[in-house]
Nucleic acid binder design. Sequence first.
DNA 1: GCATGTGTATCGGCGGTCGATACAACCGTT
DNA 2: AACGGTTGTATCGACCGCCGATACACATGC
Lengths: 271, 271
Amino acid sequence: MSTQQGFERRYQAPEREPIIEVDERLFLKSAARSFYVLEAFARSPRPLSLAEVAKGAKISKSAAQRVVQTLLVLGYLERSPTGTGVIPGRRILDRSFDYLRSNPLIERATPILTELRKTCGERVDLSLFDDVTILYAIRLQSKRETFYATLSGRRMPTFATAGGRAMLACLDDRHADDIVRRSKLAPLTPKTLVDPALIRQRVEEARRDGYAYVLEESLLGEIVVAAAVIKERNMPVGAIHIAGSLADWSAEDFRKRFAPLAIEAARALSG
Amino acid sequence: MSTQQGFERRYQAPEREPIIEVDERLFLKSAARSFYVLEAFARSPRPLSLAEVAKGAKISKSAAQRVVQTLLVLGYLERSPTGTGVIPGRRILDRSFDYLRSNPLIERATPILTELRKTCGERVDLSLFDDVTILYAIRLQSKRETFYATLSGRRMPTFATAGGRAMLACLDDRHADDIVRRSKLAPLTPKTLVDPALIRQRVEEARRDGYAYVLEESLLGEIVVAAAVIKERNMPVGAIHIAGSLADWSAEDFRKRFAPLAIEAARALSG
DNA sequence: GCATGTGTATCGGCGGTCGATACAACCGTT
DNA sequence: AACGGTTGTATCGACCGCCGATACACATGC
């Protein structure tokens, strides 16, 4: 049962090494290549020429040609309207629809988040735990937002986000420290904490209070409170974020007012 | 499924045949197989066993085993938390993020939709034209919504949605009729129009008025107005929808009030 | 016990893919 | 108008990666 590595590896206790590297004989290199091509757009979100695709996916031009042709047919790539190059295709959204629909957490969370958004009037997010990053799955924006604050699928470093810290607080110290250690501790704003000791202190605070908060650590002028959604065994699966602007709130008022709401919503989703 | 057959064909004038059948020699069957596996979850959004994957993707159990192993490693599939079977993986959301971020229309539309949502207080959607279906790309929900009304990536039939009809109104009659003809005219609610003549009449109305509306045709109790976003040559690329509840509005009031807003927003995005 | 489900593992042979290479069309420059 | 730089397209023989039948371990339920 404990075969399979790769993905679950991230969820293993940090002292454990991956048991077996993935079975080389079952890994389809040619299938993986297609995904490498799609992933090239993560690095440069613009139309890519065949040569750029080849370079981005680290495959030969011939291979890129075949993959691109195939993905065009399937709809996972489209020809750029500018006439040259290809861009991600609409069919990708179908798959994300399947993902969201297949995930019971998302379905259960939606009405709760909607309600929360209504009572708060601030931005409300559901993020998913994924090792050194968190992944926004649902985002209910408030009045004004930056473009990226509206996109689900965005990843952020676990160590520098309220939801991330709330989830770290659910793990044992060793595991949490391991995640911080493996994180690239690059500041997102001048106020981002990058000292592991300070981060650990905030995580311990979160463990004590039942919620985490960050002040302008991922976006200047923004305050976020978050509470973790846990499965059995205290395993964090996601977090509920409430984000507001320091133009509207003092940090103290914001925490006092919204932290209990985040905690309550997270508890309703847990277990 | 009709995935085969090429994407471009859909955008051609209906009298034109697909120019080039996809070059068989460039189409990577083994790469396509992986996507067939992911697409199996569109039909049954629950954990699938290896045998079900094989059946859903129409491949052998051995092939399914290899594909599943590969996609698990890449993160596009995950083991079901129930212990048996696999489900779509989080990594899919990364790709949809890339898609949304790569699409200039989405980026330009986001602030406009946000503003629109604020002034309307009702649900606001951006849909993309895709032949017989439309595809919701951005959804800004109002207070209360059904789960599916919140998911981007959802597809709806073009003929039965306000945005779809607004886009049909941009095409010439022959093309619009062709789309209706190729649509599966199954009613979504008791009020869905399925008579091609009646649909055409509504499309002509939309062409005259500059916007389309539907009354309980896709969801009982819901009224939607929509205006098309066009590129050059009147080619529709998407539509802006404003959706409200008949519990709050009379049909007349809703149209009078919101149609101009949808038209204005769509015009700001066009060209 | 047996039947039926799950996921995992093996291996020889066939054929699908590899990638160098060549080509047509379109740009700007000079 | 020939150039060097793109772009996407097309071809083909050789190799090796994948195909899929098959067998296994382990759970269920009756």
